[in-house]
Design a protein around this nucleic acid. Structure first.
Length: 190
DNA sequence: TTATCGATGGTA
DNA sequence: ACCATCGATAAA
């Protein structure tokens, strides 16, 4: 069962930990690639200085202000793409960055999925997916049973040290026992 | 194990 | 000039 609008149209901080365990599907022609989400980060709105929407309604960030359940894909450091799930009602610019997947199907064994840039390459996600409806055939998420709260860990977001106090918020969530989480400073639990 | 650095190009 | 990254390299 695909996740629907009512699932995405909620606060990013609520959606983010619940996305752990859900399955991302990318279907391109004959190839079908699937991975289980094991690490995410919430970016909670224009007031969040780590969120791309904090610079206003720029062309890049525009999709964040739109309806929930769309993909926000951006190009970074001249060579990587990052994939986000847009959340909250229209007008509230927030999203969840997917940072790591456990490979399930169709992913070339030589490619890794333990990092936001790596998983996009492994899944074949590029700018052509930006603004895509996440309920469509080309890309979507499958609902899965919720994880027990003891297997959800949380800590500070990676790579946003410029964001002052927002850099220290525990908005990163990962599956504690997963070996596919990107290697990085772990912090707390629950 | 941690620390540092270069690649590479869109964004503002 | 900066960057929601990555892989290589060096030091310890």
């Amino acid at each position: 069962m695909r996740l629907g609008l009512d699932y995405y149209e909620r606060p990013a901080l609520q959606v983010a930990p619940e996305l752990l365990g859900k399955v991302l599907i990318v279907q391109e022609g004959k190839s079908r690639r699937a991975g289980r989400i094991v690490e995410v980060e919430a970016y909670v709105g224009e007031h969040d200085l780590a969120c791309h929407a904090s610079k206003g309604r720029t062309p890049r960030a525009e999709v964040l202000f739109g309806p929930a359940g769309r993909a926000y894909v951006y190009f970074i450091y001249g060579m990587h793409y990052c994939f986000n799930v847009v959340t909250d009602p229209e007008g509230v610019a927030s999203a969840v960055l997917v940072r790591a997947l456990e490979p399930l199907e169709g992913i070339p064994p030589s490619l890794r999925t333990d990092g936001p840039g790596k998983l996009c390459r492994a899944m074949g996600i590029d700018l052509s997916f930006n603004r895509a409806d996440l309920r469509g055939d080309r890309i979507h998420l499958l609902d899965m049973p919720p994880l027990p709260s003891r297997s959800v860990a949380k800590g500070r977001r990676i790579g946003v040290d410029y964001a002052g106090k927002w850099a220290r918020k525990p908005y990163r969530f990962w599956v504690r026992e997963s070996r596919y989480v990107s290697r990085s400073p772990a912090v707390s639990q629950a």
